[in-house]
Design a binder for these strands. Structure first.
Lengths: 240, 240
DNA sequence: TACAAATATGTACTAAAAACACATTAAACC
DNA sequence: GGTTTAATGTGTTTTTAGTACATATTTGTA
């Protein structure tokens, strides 16, 4: 098998190097799992259990298993950590600096996901897991701050074009709630009238003909995501 | 070291599995190197030397070395294959299906690059390397057709927003040449007057006050890329 | 010198985005 | 129960960007 592999990658430089020099990297997946609460965007972090990063938080990640697709690993991590199966995950970028992991050569692929922090199925499986406001993130373990930033950048670039945001919200929501989520993600104030016009021009929402309740002011109409779009946001993993 | 590594990735599932099960993946880089000639976008391909893919072409790729950053590997491949050092490369996506490489578990990260196919430094280092019009690409080895398509999609999405395209052209070019490149990439015809207006509103071009020569019609003005933008397009690799 | 084939430069029209205003509703308070 | 408060809901106007389209100009060539 080494011969076969070398043949597949034969270049002037690699020919003399043995197969063992190459098949010794670990690949991991790190998930930027975002939620929304109290008008803040939050990310799910875990206390690092590596000495090198004691006291620091890290993203949720794990090594990719030998018999596991890269994308599948991201769904597994999300499921293991949150209990959620049915959530959209998107690959963003791969980080492969030599020294990025203190224990060995680990190349990691970053995914982001948005979910409703109050989802009834959400079960954080570990005491050290916690939601952290992204506006108050300091140092993170590994290169996880870079990973977080790249995912946030991607999210901000795409959030107005694609119906990504709705999995952050409960099934039924008002336009005000929706606007507040956008404002939290983009970090800007939006004009309410222009925002409503923009949203209504897309086919994203369905009017439920219901009203908010328990709000200390005039209640607004409730909407849900157009079911036709929901499929696109669903996880693509075959549920085990 | 195995203990240390396992600690870093401890989850319910991984605890019982040994370090050797994980640090045995190879990571490769595949480069979608695009050039432009005869009003066509072309990609640099090489004949696959794997039996499984005999007769098929593949992208230019290589395994990432143990002591090499992921990004650096992409610049090395470009340099080894084309002789060019000073070229922009951008990471696009990582492909990690289990069975994607017949010889073992290889996760690959795709990069794309645009370069002037008639650049004086360009020296293709192998007889089997050739430029292939993207409009006539059939089957490719591995999952390289998917990789090519994802890079082309990214390119088309970004080419109007960012000054990526200029490395496809010689130093001096006319607006007609520039427009033809855009048309080749986007696969559409553009209105000449609107195109010129759009370009002139950006700060991308510098008028050289020179004219085309050797054209069988009225010569056009020559432009070059605004030098202030050139840095952003340069390769980020420390030249060895 | 007339013609062919480009360049160069608009202008009018249309659609999208941003700025801005007012009437309406329901809860909370006196 | 009337008044206040704080939202919702629905515009209009203005500005900007995008699209469609026309004419004069320059050079090489027959």
């Amino acid at each position: 098998m080494p011969d076969k592999i070398l043949k597949a990658f034969k270049t002037a430089e690699t020919e003399k190097i043995s197969h063992l020099d190459y098949f010794n990297i670990a690949v991991s997946v790190d998930c930027v799992i975002l939620g929304y609460e109290n008008k803040q965007l939050k990310v799910l972090l875990i206390k690092s259990d590596l000495e090198e990063f004691s006291g620091l938080n890290s993203l949720l990640g794990d090594l990719v298993r030998p018999d596991e697709d890269l994308d599948e690993a991201s769904y597994r991590i999300l499921r293991e950590r949150t209990g959620l199966n049915d959530v959209y995950l998107e690959q963003v970028q791969t980080f492969g600096r030599i020294g990025r992991h203190p224990s060995g050569r680990v190349v990691t692929t970053a995914y982001f996901s948005l979910l409703d922090l109050h989802h009834h199925q959400l079960r954080l499986n570990h005491n050290d897991l916690h939601w952290h406001p992204i506006s108050k993130i300091g140092k993170l373990a590994f290169d996880h701050k870079d990973i977080l930033d790249s995912c946030l950048l991607r999210l901000r670039q795409q959030v107005l074009e694609r119906p990504l945001i709705f999995s952050l919200l409960p099934e039924k929501f008002s336009l005000r709630q929706l606007q507040e989520v956008y404002e939290a993600i983009l970090g800007t104030d939006l004009d309410r009238r222009n925002f409503r016009k923009k949203v209504s021009l897309k086919d994203w929402l369905v009017d439920l003909n219901e009203m908010e309740s328990d709000v200390p002011h005039r209640p607004g109409k409730l909407y849900k995501l157009n079911p036709a779009l929901k499929k696109r946001l669903r996880g693509r993993l075959k549920v085990i």
